[in-house]
Write a protein that binds this DNA or RNA. Structure first.
Lengths: 243, 243
DNA sequence: ACCTGAACACCGTTCAAGT
DNA sequence: ACCTGAACACCGTTCAAGT
């Protein structure tokens, strides 16, 4: 993540011409993270990126086909970052699943402006072979038969990605807007008439905030728990089972 | 969902001037759905919307503060649509949860171009009081104590929203790109060397496609199953329990 | 081989002038 | 009170001309 910003703190742009061949995908991606982390995803223009790099805006086109190609590279880096931390192989499949899920969530929230894009980008060939191998391995070690291990892998992975990306979107909101939204949520729900909303009224003090990191952890825990149950229960004896 | 397109099938624009006061938020939203369903979210410009409505592009500003305000109204309609189908009260809390989840998923996939936006829009005050009451009620009928009912409500609702929005994003992709992506996914995973990826190799034939609707259903089932388990197990006896 | 400057198409938004 | 026309700022993208 090296990158030498070309703009001074005073805001004046220093037109340092970059040395030849100093531009490449990694350098550009690092600068893009710097811009988005600082100014938000909306501020990531070719102009701003060129300024950050001390290069001409259109020089970026030599390394990325178009803006979508650049964004894809950024989300790829998030997956890569999650992978370096998220694959501890212990003798406990459940804690391995948990560790992988939390590593992905952590990587997304480390760069929420990029993380929020991931949900809209899942189809494009991610090559997280190692993560897939790891997660499928966890499912099999849990005791699931092949077909169910495959299905549970898919659902576990996609839930983790979707939830992490949504949490990132929330974290990416302007702090003041987010604070106002969360506050109005609380206020409105506390004002509901008990006669019409008895259940909400009964538990309203216990509803966690939208941005409580415990939410994601509980989602992961729920999945792990029922994977455990499924592994111990033959499918034909399960209530509501489906092929 | 009424809306009278002003462009003929030949592509020529008929400049029908709209009668006075015929423009309002609902009419504009309906036209916006028509545009996005037909041409994708990227084609939803004020210009295109004005053409669809037979009105001047900037006339829309009289009814929506800005484009974000319009998009928010569209996602609100998806929530509203889910609500009209998704609140059947039976004597089975689990099937009620399932019905609500599937109604939300269905509503999002009915307009995937809009549905994909929802994950990035969760914080803005949704007022789905009735849905919240319904879901919290399900959790309590399951037998969860107040604090746990509140936490499980939050996680269930957010997982459903996040997963549905991600599925919508996939469905919103250009069909040919999506098909190519899914195919390359399958090809690449079938080519992995067994020595390095034994678990993937063992189950690869059983991994469902990314766009298999059964994935979401299984995610819902996993949550329901572990809610059932939690309701029957005092928290202090649970493995890996957390406050 | 790589970078720069200029130009183009497109789009959200504003606002004064119309009816 | 509502709608229209014109203008402005901004941005992704292309490409011929530079070094």
């Amino acid at each position: 993540m090296a990158g030498s910003p070309a703009s001074t703190s005073s805001g004046a742009t220093v037109r340092t011409r970059r040395p030849r061949n100093s531009l490449n995908r990694d350098v550009i991606a690092a600068a893009a993270f710097a811009v988005t982390d600082r100014d938000g995803i909306g501020a990531l223009t070719f102009e701003a990126l060129g300024r950050e790099l001390g290069a001409h805006a259109t020089a970026i086109y030599r390394h990325f086909r178009d803006k979508d190609d650049l964004l894809l590279a950024l989300t790829d880096q998030l997956h890569a970052q999650a992978q370096v931390e998220g694959l501890p192989q212990t003798d406990d499949w459940a804690s391995d699943l948990r560790a992988t899920a939390l590593a992905i969530h952590r990587a997304f929230l480390a760069h929420p402006q990029v993380g929020q894009l991931v949900a809209a980008r899942t189809a494009r060939s991610r090559r997280e072979f190692a993560t897939v191998e790891h997660l499928v391995g966890c499912m099999r070690r849990a005791g699931l038969p092949p077909a169910e291990a495959a299905r549970c892998y898919r659902v576990f992975a996609d839930t983790v990605l979707a939830y992490s990306s949504m949490d990132a979107a929330l974290a990416a909101l302007d702090p003041r807007i987010r604070a106002a939204d969360l506050r109005s949520w609380e206020v409105e729900y506390r004002m509901l008439p008990e006669a019409e909303y008895p259940d909400v009224t009964a538990v309203v003090d216990h509803i966690p905030r939208l941005d409580d990191p415990g939410n994601f952890e509980l989602a992961v825990e729920l999945m792990i728990e029922s994977i455990r149950v499924r592994a111990q229960t033959p499918a034909q004896h399960r209530p509501g089972a489906q092929v």
